[in-house]
């Protein structure tokens, strides 16, 4: 039996929260927004050719795993990452690492996760949680989505670690093993901001970043005509689910990034970043308003209450704001 002294803190998003909590365990205090900013987690992409749950994929964040990898790399923290072909081997390794005294981050699928809120149990493979101990085939879980600490059995855990489909976790486990003393986070913050700015306004591809938001706005205008009201509402709902729901709380990400900019302005002592954080906060409020008005079209029965042109205009406004913010942020020194 192992049960490590792990502090459970809820977070706006699973991977940021897991990374922040794991580093906290190693006596390195770092907030969720800081992890998100340094790991350059903010993103936007609209991929109409990649269908998920019968509708095009919209993503408001970078690929899973990237936030942990980037944050620890930029801060010079030593980590281990494993994937296994053989499920039982992955469980043996997990026990071994726990016994050495390291809590472990895992990527899992959510469909078979027994403690998960039932409304979220879909085939979604990009969830992250921490295992901080085990006893006789029961594992102790800290899941940043959940209010309390929870438990899971050996079989269930093995099953969710080997969920199949897009971004299958393949038993992926990751944990920091050594945090050096006196880490200077200032250069990491600057690098993180530059990377995010590049992702949002620098990539010359129409489906990514601020351009991607504009492209989505353009498609949205013709959804009703091309797909009919039901499909259009479902497509819109898919964008909003990716924006607000578990895992990819998109508007949530804009808030977290704003909070990061605010913290960064204090650490770097650059006042203009504070102004940027206010602009980012207002941008996030605009995204939230978009999802609020959009959700009116997603009710069972009933006609669309908001025109798709109105929603597309809101998106264009968000795209303009983000382009403006990140063009300025790209010049950070």
């Amino acid at each position: 039996m192992v049960k490590l002294e792990f502090e459970h803190r809820q977070a706006g998003h699973c991977e940021n929260g897991v990374t922040s909590n794991l580093l906290n365990y190693h006596k390195f205090k770092i907030s969720e927004p800081m992890v998100f900013g340094i790991g350059a987690g903010l993103f936007f992409s609209y991929l109409p050719f990649l269908k998920m749950q019968h509708a095009p994929t919209t993503s408001f964040r970078v690929w899973p795993g990237m936030v942990f990898d980037r944050t620890t790399k930029m801060l010079g923290i030593k980590t281990r990452v494993h994937r296994f072909r053989e499920p039982r081997e992955s469980m043996t390794k997990l026990n071994e690492v726990l016994e050495q005294g390291y809590p472990v981050g895992l990527q899992v699928g959510t469909y078979h996760l027994p403690f998960f809120p039932p409304e979220y149990r879909m085939h979604y493979n990009m969830h992250n949680l921490v295992i901080y101990g085990h006893d006789n085939g029961t594992y102790f879980v800290s899941d940043t989505l959940m209010e309390r600490l929870v438990e899971i059995s050996y079989d269930d855990l093995m099953r969710v670690r080997y969920a199949k489909g897009v971004f299958a976790p393949q038993g992926r486990m990751y944990y920091p093993i050594h945090v050096p003393d006196n880490i200077d986070i200032k250069p990491a913050i600057i690098k993180g901001i530059r990377k995010t700015a590049y992702n949002m306004v620098g990539i010359p591809f129409p489906l990514i970043g601020a351009k991607g938001i504009r492209y989505l706005a353009g498609r949205m205008r013709v959804w009703e005509k091309n797909l009919g009201p039901d499909r259009a509402a479902y497509y819109l709902g898919q964008v909003l689910r990716m924006e607000e729901e578990v895992g990819t709380a998109g508007a949530g990400f804009r808030y977290i990034y704003g909070a990061f900019l605010e913290e960064a302005s204090r650490v770097l002592q650059q006042d203009w970043l504070r102004e940027m954080s206010v602009e980012m906060g207002e941008n996030a409020n605009q995204w939230r308003a978009f999802s609020y008005y959009g959700s009116r079209n997603c009710k069972k029965r009933g006609k669309p209450e908001q025109s798709y042109d109105f929603l597309a205009d809101m998106l264009l406004d968000c795209a303009d704001r983000e382009e403006k913010i990140f063009k300025k942020l790209a010049k950070i020194k």
């Binding site: 809120p117 039932p118 959940m146 949530g252 808030y255 704003g258 605010e262 206010v278 906060g281 996030a284």
Partner: peptide, 17 residues
């Protein structure tokens, strides 16, 4: 759905994040 409460971020011009 009232199974679990989650953490949300907010922003207000006066009060900040």
């Amino acid at each position: 759905y009232t199974y679990n409460r989650e953490l949300f971020y907010h922003f207000d011009k006066e009060k900040g994040f």
